[in-house]
């Protein structure tokens, strides 16, 4: 069970919003890089986010580059899951590879600051602020295995191979 506050963003949050190219020189200094997460979408996000909180987006969350640093710094900033109406392919796969769940559901019903409780096994998001419960789309089997083993590198380390 994951519990935290919703930080709401709009449609088309790109990887350039999440971690702008101008900070590429910090990519091998992750604690510094994480200070800029989502800066171009909300300059105060880093100050507001608490461990366990959720980033809630609209359509096409994470579009743009393949930089895995985008989900990585979100995770480092304490984000425990991303919720969106839809997510860009590379971002979705990268996040799961790092053990950060991306849950596809109707986020219009969630408001900024709502307290959420997520049950990954049951596939539900309970909005404790408005009392509604949403269900999210199933994560494909192979990705669920990777997520459950703590990410792709941990998976490969354990099995020495990749299977579907």
């Amino acid at each position: 069970m994951l519990n935290g506050k919703a930080h709401k963003f709009g449609d088309s949050i790109s990887t350039d919003h999440i971690i702008p190219g101008r900070y590429a020189h910090l990519r091998s200094n992750l604690p510094e890089l994480a200070k800029h997460v989502l800066e171009d979408a909300d300059p105060n996000f880093v100050k507001k986010v608490k461990p366990g909180d959720f980033v809630v987006g609209g359509n096409n969350f994470g579009l743009g580059s393949s930089r895995e640093h985008a989900p990585l710094v979100m995770k480092m900033a304490g984000v425990s899951a991303v919720l969106a109406k839809s997510a860009a392919r590379i971002f979705f796969r990268n996040a799961i590879n790092l053990g950060l769940p991306v849950l596809i559901c109707d986020t219009d019903k969630i408001k900024n600051g709502d307290e959420l409780e997520i049950d990954l096994t049951a596939g539900t998001v309970k909005d404790k602020t408005n009392g509604q419960t949403l269900t999210f789309g199933k994560i494909p089997g192979v990705m669920l295995k990777i997520l459950n083993e703590g990410g792709l590198i941990a998976y490969v380390k354990k099995h020495g191979d990749i299977k579907v």
Partner: peptide, 12 residues
């Protein structure tokens, strides 16, 4: 395009 972890796996 893929992320760093996926490409690392493809390399290995």
């Amino acid at each position: 395009g893929m992320g760093s972890s996926d490409v690392a796996v493809a390399m290995g």
